[in-house]
Each structure stands twice: as C-alpha cells, then as structure tokens.
Simulated scan of single mutants.
Amino acid sequence: MSKVWLVTGCSRGLGRSLAEAILAQGHRLVATARTPSQLEDLAERYGDQVRLVALDVTDFEAATRSIEIARESFGRLDVLVNNAGFGDISSIEDTGLEEFRAQIDTNLFGVIHLTKAAVPLMREQGSGHIIQLSSIGGRIGPPGRGAYAAAKWGVEGFSEVLAKEVGPLGIKVTIVEPGAFRTDFVASSTIRPSRPEYASTVGVLADHVRSLHGTQAGNPARAASVILQIADLAEPPLRLLLGSDAVQAAEKSDQARIGSDRKWRELSLSTDFQAPSTPYTVPWERP
C-alpha cells in the first residue's frame, strides 16, 4: 500500500538514496533539503508524487510547515525519516563552542523539531512511523566525535522515551544506527586540526576516516531498501544497526559494558539503604 513519507536531508548521501527508493516503489514523498533545487530531477521524473520543500531543520517553524505541506499535499503522513545531519572531527578541547552548538542544533534539535511537529498529526491519525537516523556513534563514543556523539546519544535517549510515550497511540519509532556507508558524508564534514597530544586518539581516527573514504563497505541503496522494509513491519525494531562494521562495534561495546557492570556490581548495590527484597519493576510497565 502506498504511504506518505517525509525525509529530511534528501540532497545527498543516504537521504538521496532513500528518496529515490521511496518514489521508485510508488510511495508519495515530501523531499526536503536546504537547497531544494538540487532535487528538481526528482520532480521532473515523478511529478505530483513528490513535493520539494526547503527546510533548515534547526528552524522549528520551518519544520512545522513541512509537516503541514505533507498534510495539505497528501492528506496524511505515514513515515517521517529524520536523516539530515553532519559530523565534524576534532578533539573536545579543540572544538569551539559554536561548532558544538552547530552540530547539536542540526543532529539533535533538528530531530526534536521534526518529531514534535509530526506527532500531533500521527496521534490524530492513530498511526505513523518515526525513523531516526542515528549512528553507531550513538552507541559508542569514537575519539574526535565529541559533538556528534553527544547529539546522537541524545537522539537515542529522546527516541527511546518517545517510543514508550507514543507506542500506545499507534505510533512506531525506530532508531537506525549506520556504520560507514559509501556516501559523501565524510567529504561534507570537516576534519579540524587537533593539538599534537591527541595524535594517538583523534589523529588515528581522522587518518582512518580519510583513508576509508570511497571504499566504505556500506551500500546506501541497500540501506534504503532495508528502511523501506522496516516501514512495512507491524512490529519494527526499536533499534537497527546497519553495516557489518556497526554490528561488530556494537557487539564489542555491549560486551565491555556488561563486563564492567558485573565487575562493579557489588559496589553499585552497596549504595542502597538495604538489599532490595523484590525485583525492580519500572512503573510504566504493567506486571
């Protein structure tokens, strides 16, 4: 069945691949970009099946307007994909506060803006699916990615809370965590100089990113196909890793975290007034 999608950051990379896949499968699309003229070929090929919208995701009023365009053009919104983002590389010490704010405004507040604008419409419909493009950097903390990881970890926490709140309203949430994909993401991001003391950490990552560009294992067309698949599922995953590098990094990180928690378990438990007599249950889940 044809769905109405809205995807941010459609001008390049995974967003562009996803926009093309959505339209090729006969769905309707609100395709957004800072410069929508870069998407004119989609309008030429697909006509009224697509609406091109200028959108800076850091502008909440513009985000709200893009959701209204989906309603006005197609009568509803079935899938929102928060894809727009960028990630510079530098040590935390050498990243200016304005650079921090720029990454967090786009990568985190951009997601918050579009999500808050879309939820009322989806709540009224009693259905919808919000797909957040996070990153393996939202699961682990790579050196040199302090601002980007801060934003993506924020997306993960925000989206997990969102899923619990809107699930009973018929709205699904999926956090997609890609590894390195063969797009121009690296070229569009900036590797900023870091002082020599960070050569063995930030410098190593920066060199790796430079050497990897153009040879990444991730195929954006296959990622787009997977996103279309999960949008059709009655019970989609809350989190979905994309790419072998993301799977391996997440497994290693999760195992290390579990090991650390076990190592320090007794110290953690020692802070209670007394040993708990009953297993802990979260208050929002029924026994």
Rank of each mutant, 00 (worst) to 15 (best):
G203K: 00
T190D: 10
G141K: 13
K172P: 09
G218P: 06
A217Q: 14
R139Y: 08
H208R: 07
V176G: 09
S135E: 07
S189A: 12
I136G: 12
L133C: 02
A206N: 02
P168T: 05
V166F: 10
E177R: 09
V166I: 14
A151K: 01
P196L: 11
P196Q: 11
T201N: 12
H129T: 06
S189H: 02
H213G: 00
S194D: 03
W153P: 04
I130Q: 10
G146E: 04
I175H: 08
A199N: 08
P168V: 06
E165M: 02
S135T: 14
A150C: 11
Q132M: 12
E177W: 09
G157P: 09
R192S: 06
L205F: 12
F158M: 10
P193Y: 06
T174Q: 03
V166L: 05
R210S: 02
G214E: 02
V166Q: 06
V204F: 08
S211Y: 00
A206H: 01
Y148T: 06
V202A: 05
T183F: 13
A199D: 15
V173T: 14
L162M: 07
Q216I: 02
W153K: 00
G214W: 03
L162Y: 03
L169E: 15
S159G: 11
L133A: 00
R139W: 07
F158R: 08
G146L: 03
K172A: 12
G170C: 14
V202Y: 03
N219K: 07
L162F: 04
T183W: 13
R182Q: 11
H208L: 04
D207T: 03
G214K: 01
H208Y: 10
A151D: 01
A180S: 15
R195I: 10
H208K: 06
P178E: 10
E165S: 02
G170I: 15
I131L: 11
P168N: 09
S194P: 08
H208Q: 08
G170R: 14
E156G: 05
A217E: 15
A147T: 06
K152Q: 13
F185L: 15
R182M: 02
I131R: 04
Q132W: 02
R145A: 15
P220M: 07
L169H: 13
K172S: 13
Q132A: 13
G218H: 11
